[in-house]
């Protein structure tokens, strides 16, 4: 990029954004994003907007126009399992390819990593984390736990103050992404107006539709060299419909867990079967493996398993 800086002095020079987009390597990340992540159309759209802004800023810098480095702190809101962490990881890569962060690593933390246990413990702990994340992206999962209004002596406030200070003063060194469930994040932002003004991009992750969920399931299985038999695929679709209506449904994560349990049952079935096992058997998940789930009998298929009848 530096080599080209000198070439672009005249006003009639032009930049081809398409070539620029391809050269930056961001195009590859977006292709991967499109391939790997089902649905999430609004999220992808927003990411592209941000990428476009950064590319345009870069182009402006080449023409010598002032390019104020944009605030890129983000907040990801959405229900559990909607892909917030996965997108954050990609975000780090996109920002790295666009040259906005220098290293492009992602540091994932929760309240425990930031807030100390006694007076004077919080500041060093928070600073330690911030130092580690510099040059990359700091992802604060369930950020609303940082603020506990019910306890006015909670050390979370101290962590928030340090965070805000670094978010403001070292915008070039670090991008902070806050994530959490929509409603509680909203309350968190209301209680900490400083955060809202420093976070430029609020991205909402929608829930997946049943169709998207079954696509996710297929991808998870394909990644592990499994496949669903035809009857199993039907059963799985029914499973999704039922599970979606139940409480504690965590979108993609529930699907992953359900499939993990199906694999467990498949292994058990194969282990107990009388006949020799072929490669095809090892690969295929049958309808029985899915239908054995408690969801079909009205229970919730989640850990810890709920005990239906008392022991003894």
């Amino acid at each position: 990029m530096d080599a080209m800086t000198d070439d672009l002095k005249r006003a009639d020079d032009a930049i081809d954004f398409r070539a620029e987009f391809a050269n930056s390597g961001v195009a590859d990340v977006f292709d991967e994003l499109e391939r790997d992540l089902v649905g999430l159309a609004p999220v992808k759209k927003r990411l592209k907007e941000i990428a476009a802004l950064l590319l345009v800023d870069r182009a402006r810098a080449r023409f010598g126009l002032s390019a104020v480095s944009p605030t890129l702190h983000m907040s990801f809101t959405g229900n559990p399992g909607t892909g917030k962490t996965t997108v954050a990881l990609r975000m780090a890569e996109i920002l790295h390819r666009l040259g906005y962060v220098r290293k492009g690593h992602l540091v994932t933390v929760t309240r425990d990593d930031l807030v100390g246990q006694y007076i004077g413990h919080t500041a060093p702990k928070t600073k330690e984390v911030l130092k580690k994340a510099m040059g990359g992206v700091l992802f604060i999962d369930e950020a609303y736990y940082l603020y506990r209004p019910e306890n006015e002596r909670d050390y979370g406030q101290e962590a928030i103050e340090i965070l805000l200070q670094v978010m403001e003063n070292q915008r070039d060194d670090l991008v902070v992404i806050l994530a959490g469930y929509g409603e509680r994040m909203e309350r968190f932002f209301q209680a900490n107006p400083g955060f809202r003004s420093r976070v430029a991009h609020h991205i909402d992750f929608p829930d997946y539709s049943a169709e998207e969920l079954s696509q996710i399931g297929e991808r998870i299985l394909a990644g592990m060299n499994y496949r669903l038999s035809e009857t199993a695929a039907d059963a799985f679709e029914r499973y999704i419909e039922l599970r979606k209506a139940q409480p504690h449904f965590a979108n993609g994560r529930s699907i992953r867990n359900a499939l993990d349990r199906a694999r467990l049952r498949q292994a058990n079935r194969l282990f107990n079967s009388e006949r020799p096992v072929t490669a095809d058997d090892l690969e295929t998940i049958e309808a029985d493996d899915i239908l054995a789930s408690r969801v079909f009998s009205g229970g919730i298929d989640s850990y810890p398993p709920q005990q239906k009848e008392p022991n003894g």
């Binding site: 220098r102 600073k127 040059g135």
Partner: peptide, 8 residues
């Protein structure tokens, strides 16, 4: 991972 942390 980045000098910014040390500079801080």
């Amino acid at each position: 991972k980045d000098a910014a942390g040390v500079m801080f």
